[in-house]
Amino acid sequence: MEGARPEAVIETRGLRRVFKSRGRQVEAVAGVDLDVRRGEIFGFLGPNGAGKTTTLRMLSTLLAPSGGTARVAGCDLATQPGKIRERIGYVGQAGGADREITGRTELVFQGRLYGMPTAAAQKRAAELIVMLELDGAADRKVGTYSGGQKRRLDIGLGLVHDPELLFLDEPTTGLDPQSRARVWEEVRKMHDRGTTVFLTTHYLDEADALCDRVAIIDYGKIVAEGTPEELKRAIAGDVVTFTVAGEQQRALDLVKDQDFVREARLENGSVHLYVDRGEVAMPAILRLLDGASLQLMTVELHRPSLDDVFLRQTGRSLRETAA
């Protein structure tokens, strides 16, 4: 359609959603502008209740927005929800397979829902079973699956019709590291086939390792957006984290006005310093603390992670807020 840049698969402007419950209004999504490009893995990162699922449900036509506009897979969300449904796949936080039905039956039925004739749906189901290594489980009831098998089946259900855009809501939450790695692998395979993947996650390392670009959402608003590298670079320099015996506040006051410190804050009972160059800052910090007779307990120097990005943008640590 004219107007939309061809490479934008998702384009939202001022997308909002208000929930009313017991007379109180909750603005779960408070004006979100997103641009997701064709073929990328886009990560939507935020703590519990940030508005990730609500945004995803709006973009996949499950929930009517309270305001704003969105184009998804080349179609207008408000006027062409039917067309969007044909082009996207959606794997919800709870999955979507019935425990009482076998995985194969679910996959075939899903294909039929997308209009495939029975034979084609069966063929596609068999393909996906091989691809997702569900051979041993496919003809058992879903209720008997392991967590990882269940999640792979859920993803398979979203892939039956080979959508150009796939939404994954927390695809690896609750999985063991091995199953998590398997899901990552599947996501990368989809990416290689040219599918655009929009996923939500609590995990910074996941966003960092998997995503081409990331948006961080907090209280319904985007607080940062870019490639993981860009976001980290925006912080620039290095991060020094240390604790001292006794009062952290004194240590903070001591170092925060030094030239080499760009920003300093107290977080989780330790001092976080954003510095230009860690190797210059470290000896200086040690000298200062020594001079004030403050005993250093722990000290860490690291490149900024997405956690630091989150901390800088929201003033809170992601790990601390995520349940």
Binding site: G92, G96, D98, G115, L157
Partner: peptide, 16 residues
């Protein structure tokens, strides 16, 4: 029960 398992959402996302 199906709502809880996410089955209904899954069906509603399809063009059915």
């Amino acid at each position: 029960a199906e709502l809880r398992m996410g089955v209904i959402e899954r069906l509603r996302v399809t063009p059915v």
